[in-house]
Simulated scan of single mutants.
Amino acid sequence: MNTFLETSRLILRPWQEADAEALYKYAKDPAIGPIAGWPPHTSIAHSLEIIRTVFTAPETYAVVLKETNEPVGSAGIMFGDGMHSAAMQADEAEIGYWIGVPYWGQGLIPEAVRCLLQRCFTDLGVSAVWCGYYDGNTQSRRVMEKCGLTYHHTESGNTSPLGDIRTEHFMRITAEEWKALQQIREINKDARSTELISQLTQVWESSVRATHHFLSEQDICNLRPMTKEALRTIDTLIIAFSANKPVGFMCIQDQKIEALFLAPGHIGKGIGKRLIRLAINRYKAFYIDVNEQNTQATDIYRHLGFEVFRRNETDSQGNPFPILCMKFNPN
């Protein structure tokens, strides 16, 4: 039975022999195959042979652009009994993908990979998904990061399908991690109801009382209306839910994390780290200002790659609370 999957811009469907010309059009480019370990296609006949052999494997999809109805890439789910790179358990899978150079940087492959992750975890009962990339293929790594996978391990001395020896890095996401990510959603301004703002303000206040012991009761009272206004007007508001109730939120403006707060009962459960990674990988938010006294927060940001580049003696309201200005360093 053929499976057809759909996203907002893509259709993922089985490859057809009639796709050979389109496949050759993109797979002949030397920027595509060699970095992933396979040779550029040499002719339409070569592409047709790949469709008849390699692409007949289960869960192998042509990535078709809805706008043109043309296959522009390929993505697939691989299992332990087929072609794969990761050392997987029986109930795990690996996702592989590529897309034609004209479509790089448009978010199409992350869109396809998120669709395949959903298929893995909701339809196929997979417990974890792996992705591998060879040293230097930073674009592929970025796709994995955007889709919520995190680094697992590196293997040196692996032989690629081209026969050369390479270093391969592996990233992974479990079913539990994926389900947790589905509880994190961006909320547009027109969907921020009075009730939602009230709930988020309660999250903020409970979080502040649990972590910002240097603030007085008057400080909290003074900050409360400013917090409500920021929640209403900030460009990007991302909320973490549990049982349909907000338990944390993050505000982003101009590549900067302006706020991140979690209800006390949900601190230390990985939600904060997931929000920060989301900010870095999907929203390219590389800056954050942190109260110096909030050592728990500064330690988390440092652990995730942020470094202090400036220290201010006062906060943005001129209060005597030193601020550490931090920037993400991917190295």
Results as ranks from 00 to 15, higher is better:
residue 239 I to H: 02
residue 2 N to V: 13
residue 321 F to V: 10
residue 155 E to A: 15
residue 147 C to W: 01
residue 260 L to W: 01
residue 5 L to D: 09
residue 205 E to G: 00
residue 91 D to N: 15
residue 180 A to Y: 04
residue 81 D to V: 04
residue 222 N to G: 00
residue 198 S to F: 03
residue 184 I to S: 10
residue 164 D to I: 05
residue 163 G to T: 09
residue 292 E to I: 09
residue 294 N to D: 13
residue 95 I to Q: 06
residue 270 G to Q: 08
residue 40 P to Y: 08
residue 125 G to T: 10
residue 228 K to S: 15
residue 187 I to C: 01
residue 273 K to S: 15
residue 197 I to G: 02
residue 225 P to Q: 10
residue 156 S to V: 11
residue 122 T to Q: 14
residue 261 F to R: 10
residue 265 G to C: 08
residue 83 M to I: 14
residue 262 L to I: 10
residue 140 S to G: 06
residue 211 T to G: 06
residue 318 G to T: 11
residue 300 I to L: 15
residue 5 L to M: 06
residue 60 T to D: 08
residue 44 I to H: 02
residue 236 T to M: 06
residue 176 E to G: 01
residue 84 H to K: 11
residue 51 I to K: 08
residue 278 L to W: 06
residue 111 E to P: 02
residue 219 D to W: 04
residue 309 F to Y: 15
residue 253 Q to A: 14
residue 58 P to T: 04
residue 192 R to Q: 08
residue 236 T to P: 01
residue 281 N to L: 00
residue 147 C to P: 05
residue 140 S to W: 04
residue 131 C to W: 04
residue 196 L to C: 04
residue 197 I to M: 08
residue 207 S to M: 00
residue 260 L to D: 05
residue 238 I to Q: 03
residue 245 K to Y: 12
residue 241 F to R: 03
residue 279 A to I: 01
residue 204 W to Q: 12
residue 192 R to W: 07
residue 75 A to V: 08
residue 126 V to N: 03
residue 142 R to W: 00
residue 134 Y to V: 13
residue 285 A to K: 04
residue 111 E to A: 08
residue 55 F to R: 03
residue 114 R to H: 14
residue 172 R to T: 07
residue 72 V to H: 01
residue 222 N to W: 06
residue 182 Q to L: 10
residue 29 D to G: 09
residue 240 A to Y: 03
residue 279 A to G: 02
residue 237 L to D: 09
residue 62 A to Y: 02
residue 18 A to V: 13
residue 177 E to H: 04
residue 156 S to M: 12
residue 148 G to M: 07
residue 27 A to V: 08
residue 324 L to N: 13
residue 46 H to Y: 11
residue 58 P to Q: 00
residue 61 Y to W: 03
residue 179 K to I: 08
residue 197 I to Q: 08
residue 330 P to L: 05
residue 34 P to F: 07
residue 89 Q to W: 06
residue 41 H to L: 07
residue 269 K to L: 14
residue 211 T to E: 03
residue 268 G to I: 11
residue 244 N to S: 14
residue 293 Q to D: 13
residue 231 L to E: 12
residue 76 G to T: 06
residue 182 Q to D: 05
residue 127 S to F: 02
residue 144 M to C: 03
residue 189 K to A: 15
residue 179 K to E: 14
residue 60 T to Y: 03
